[in-house]
């Protein structure tokens, strides 16, 4: 059982997860950010490996990805930067990025390296369920990497059940029909959507992401879910001249 599965083994409430882009704001910041986030009360993390054409992402993560690529971030460099990860950080960590980058690295090798540095799971938004089952699942299982699937307001109940069957940590509930970095308006329709999923009594817990930007939206998501994921709002707040300070200040609104 990996750290992520251990975390979700018990019933959880109010988990705080932070996404950030590897290699941003500077190539060497990745591990330092993880340490600071753990110290500031994050429960688990998603580290994004950058891609040139991130279609599921809004402007903030597009920009941080481009900046990271311009600084020379690649998957081999990321694994190198993470080699001492487990001496410094103990909370579960996922990698998040697009399928072509994984494909070029080699799926088997990718999973192997993830396990070696202590990565617990992956979110690959453009890797579809069919392809995962047919071509990727074996490697993920072999190295104990949890693959996290997304569910949106338009995902059918039948498909959600299938996703639940393939998941072994948590399900990522996309808050609304949008790319990352929007603002969740906690309307009746989104509340009805969260409640609909909660009422399905899935075997996996779910965590809400996309549009979670502050304490208000974080609390709203946590009424229904085990936790919430903050990405763009965090990335936007990183101050390269005051890395630790800006992270700690941002985290205070959730953990004080």
């Amino acid at each position: 059982m990996n750290r992520l599965q251990q975390l979700f083994e018990k019933e959880q409430k109010g988990l705080l997860s932070i996404y950030y882009t590897a290699g941003y704001p500077n190539l060497g910041d990745t591990l330092k950010i993880a340490e600071t986030l753990e110290q500031s009360g994050a429960d688990f993390l998603e580290i994004g490996f950058p891609y040139s054409d991130p279609v599921a992402d809004g402007p903030v993560i597009q920009a941080s990805s481009k900046k990271a690529l311009d600084s020379g971030m690649t998957l081999p460099i990321l694994f190198e930067k993470l080699k001492d990860l487990r001496q410094k950080v103990s909370i579960p960590i996922l990698l998040m990025g697009y399928v072509n980058v994984v494909l070029q690295y080699g799926v088997e090798e990718f999973c192997k390296r993830c396990q070696e540095v202590g990565i617990d799971g992956c979110i690959i938004p453009d890797l579809p369920m069919y392809e995962y089952e047919e071509m990727y699942q074996t490697s993920f299982k072999k190295y104990g990497i949890s693959n996290i699937f997304l569910v949106t307001p338009q995902t059918s109940e039948e498909r959600i059940r299938k996703i639940d069957g393939l998941s072994n940590a948590f399900i990522y509930l996309v808050s609304s029909a949008a790319t990352t970095g929007g603002n969740l308006s906690v309307s009746e329709s989104s509340a009805a959507y969260f409640k609909r999923i909660a009422d399905m009594k899935l075997k996996n817990p779910f965590v809400i992401g996309f549009g979670i930007s502050n304490r208000e939206t974080f609390d709203a998501a946590n009424e229904y879910a085990s936790g919430a994921i903050i990405g763009s709002a965090f990335v936007k707040n990183i101050d390269r001249n005051n890395l630790e300070g800006s992270i700690k200040t941002f985290m205070k609104q959730f953990r004080s």
Partner: peptide, 20 residues
Amino acid sequence: KRGYYGDFGGAYIPEMLYPN
């Protein structure tokens, strides 16, 4: 039937585009 031409094709899309 799977949407492939030999090794190529498929539908590598985020879940948000799946219903469309």
